[in-house]
């Protein structure tokens, strides 16, 4: 090849264990430990058994974290998942009340979730110039609207046969089934995002969609897949929510989308795309869950919990910005 000047370029990666400890994820783990100590001090009932007993309704929400992380890394957003949860729980409940078995309920919940996600993905990839925030705002209203129509005048439905889907409430010792699903999802999704070429394609699309497209990455297929996957996980969330609350109403899943996005952002995933890691989001999710359980045990006002989580979210976004500013100031001073 031409232009050889004998210059060599190093291919040895820099950075070691120090960077790992001082990373955002490292800080989050410390925070998780702090929150748990804080919980134990705050409430005498804050122990493993109680946490595990109260966790199922929070764990279901974490399913969606993994799908949402993909969507955010892509540079997209999906604010319809709360409504998908509502719609799937509603449909599952109605099917169960028609006398159908657990298999049908599972199938309906997951199927409806997947269909909703595919609809989001279809619109987002066919009309690429539309911001996904607006698309999913539209479908958010549509999905909840359908659920409300199905729920009818009362606005709520209760399962007549709560035993039929009892299997979803199964536990291994004190550990609920949903906990295992979260762990399995975490392993799969973290591996896919960090270790596979598919994961890197997500980052490529989120970092520079045009370059990704020019490089031969199937941008729209991957976006469609990711929206569908998130819909499916929202269906899974709806299913487990139904199993732990024995019904659905018009407020089921309200605000879930924002909480899931908050977990991701708190975990270091940028809403602008291309940055962040599910590991951070995963730890952040547990921080929020532990906080909620701790505050719940001392009967703190739920609205106040929201305020605290909101403050934490803003601080978490501020910290990197502030440290960056300080670092660059230091650099200029040195020079």
């Amino acid at each position: 090849m031409a232009g050889k000047s004998g210059r060599t370029i190093s291919a040895t990666p820099q950075g070691g264990i120090k960077e790992k400890i001082f990373s955002w994820e490292g800080a989050l783990i410390l925070l998780l430990i702090a929150v748990n100590i804080f919980g134990a001090v705050l409430s005498p009932n804050y122990n493993m058994t109680n946490i595990l007993r109260e966790s199922p309704r929070y764990l279901a929400e974490i399913f969606m974290l993994f799908g949402m992380a993909f969507i955010l890394v892509l540079g997209d957003i999906d604010i319809s998942v709360g409504s998908i949860v509502c719609l799937t729980a509603t449909m599952g409940c109605l099917v169960s009340n028609k006398g159908m078995g657990v298999g049908a309920v599972i199938l309906v919940c997951l199927g409806v979730g997947l269909l909703c996600g595919m609809l989001n993905g279809f619109v987002a990839t066919k009309f690429t110039e539309l911001p996904t925030m607006i698309i999913t705002l539209g479908t958010q209203i549509i999905f909840r609207g359908i659920a409300e129509v199905a729920l009818g005048d009362g606005g709520s439905a209760s399962m007549t046969d709560i035993q039929s889907i009892g299997i979803l409430r199964a536990k291994v010792g004190p550990v609920p089934l949903s906990f295992f699903i979260v762990i399995i999802c975490a392993i799969i999704f973290i591996t896919v995002l960090n270790k596979t070429t598919f994961g890197r394609k997500l980052y490529a699309i989120g970092s520079n969609r045009t370059t990704a497209y020019y490089t031969g990455i199937e941008v729209q297929r991957i976006r469609f897949f990711s929206f569908s996957m998130l819909g499916f996980l929202a269906g899974l969330c709806g299913l487990f929510l139904l199993a732990s609350t024995y019904g659905a109403n018009t407020t089921t899943g309200n605000g879930f989308e924002m909480e899931v996005i908050a977990m991701c952002v708190f975990g270091g995933i940028a809403t602008t795309g291309g940055k962040g890691n599910i590991i951070g989001g995963f730890i952040a999710a547990f921080i929020i869950v532990c906080l909620r359980i701790a505050f719940g045990q001392i009967n703190m006002n739920t609205q106040l919990i929201l305020v605290i989580i909101g403050v934490m979210l803003i601080v978490s976004v501020l910290i990197p910005a502030v440290t960056n500013a300080i670092n660059s100031r230091k650099k200029t001073k040195k020079a």
Partner: peptide, 26 residues
Amino acid sequence: GFINNKKEWEIGKQYLEDVDTKAVTI
């Protein structure tokens, strides 16, 4: 489907050197 860092770094280095890029590391 799993990223092979070693191979990638090797090939990245090779081609960047082939076109004589003025860079310190890949």
